[in-house]
Structure formats: structure tokens, C-alpha cells
């Protein structure tokens, strides 16, 4: 008992001192993505396939609670923008450790846009993802124009407005 408290305080101090440096993508940076499709590991999909389109890159995982809202709502937004003739596409990068969990999620919340699987977590590291979900809007040149972490329903309007500005 008399040892427990000082040891606990020591652990507290040790943990506070520890901190991790983090890479972060900046506005204007360009990091092309090439990853296998979640549903077909032999088929590669690249962000370069969507040049001449505003590309919404969405890092997500099946266990991420806001993703239950963001994926269906992004799917609707994509439909709407397509109907309005906007060159807009979404590239979802799944980061589950088990791809089957992602597939099960998509069976429940299906989306029409391409979903790729990043088993090694290469791209979130490159982009400096700090929370789930995090999204990046790439312009027609593939440069990052917008970074957004987290998701709430009101974000859809903001994204829509931005896409309209980028594709007048």
C-alpha cells in the first residue's frame, strides 16, 4: 500500500513526458494514392484515375462511430452532385485491421463510390490523419484543398458548397 501511491505517481509522470511527433499534410500538397480495391485485391485503384474531378478522399474504419453517418450521407451527396453534372468523386480508404469487418459494414451501409483497402496504414501516415474519419478534398490537379477531421451531418452542406465553388 505504501509503495503503490508513489509508484502510480511515477507512472503518471513518465506517461505525461511521452509524446509522439506526427507528420501532417498541408494545403497544396499532393500525395497520389494507389491501393487495391477492398472487394478485389487484384484490382488497383489510383487517385490519378480521377484527375479532372474534385476528389473527396475519406479515411474510415468500420468501428468508427461517425462513419455510420458519414458514408451513407456522402453517398447521397455524390449522387446529388453527379445529377447536377459536377465532376465529383469519392475515394474511400478503409483502415480496418480485418477487411472482412469493412465488407460487413458496407453490406449494411452500401456505397456506390470506390473503396480501397490500406492494410499497412501507409496513406494515413503520409497524410497525417489525426482522427477517424478524416477527409481531404483534392482539386483538379490532385492538390489538397481542404482537410477535415471528424464528421457531423451539417458538414455535408459545407462540403457541397466547397465543391460548387471548386466546380462553378
Amino acid at each position: 500500500m505504501h509503495h503503490t501511491i508513489p509508484v502510480c505517481i511515477l507512472i503518471l509522470i513518465v506517461f505525461i513526458v511521452l509524446s509522439a511527433p506526427a507528420n501532417s499534410a498541408k494545403i497544396g500538397d499532393s500525395y497520389p494514392i494507389t491501393l487495391p480495391s477492398l472487394f478485389d485485391s487484384k484490382k488497383n485503384i489510383s487517385s490519378n484515375d480521377f484527375k479532372e474531378k474534385v476528389l473527396y478522399v475519406d479515411f474510415w474504419a468500420s468501428w468508427c462511430i461517425p462513419c455510420r453517418k458519414s458514408l451513407p450521407q456522402l453517398n447521397e451527396l455524390r449522387e446529388r452532385l453527379k445529377r447536377n453534372g459536377k465532376d465529383f468523386e469519392i475515394l474511400a480508404i478503409n483502415l480496418d485491421s480485418d477487411p472482412n469487418e469493412a465488407i460487413a459494414f458496407l453490406n449494411k451501409y452500401p456505397v456506390d463510390y470506390p473503396v480501397v483497402y490500406d492494410a499497412e496504414g501507409k496513406y494515413p501516415k503520409l497524410y497525417g490523419v489525426k482522427g477517424m474519419p478524416t477527409s481531404y478534398i483534392l482539386d483538379l490537379q490532385g492538390k489538397i484543398r481542404y482537410v477535415h477531421s471528424g464528421f457531423r451531418s451539417s458538414d455535408i452542406k459545407k462540403i457541397e458548397a466547397l465543391v460548387h465553388e471548386m466546380l462553378p
Partner: peptide
């Protein structure tokens, strides 16, 4: 138990990324 935990913390805690938190 406490010493073991603090040692494992020292070696491993700085490396858990936001997308690795599924478990």
C-alpha cells in the same frame, strides 16, 4: 504488475495511430 505495465508503456505507447484503435 505496475512495473511491467509501465515498461510496456515505455516501449509501445508512442506508436498507436488513430486508425489502429479498432480494438
Amino acid at each position: 504488475v505496475i512495473i511491467l505495465l509501465s515498461l510496456s508503456g515505455l516501449t509501445g505507447c508512442a506508436s498507436v495511430e488513430p486508425w489502429e484503435k479498432g480494438m
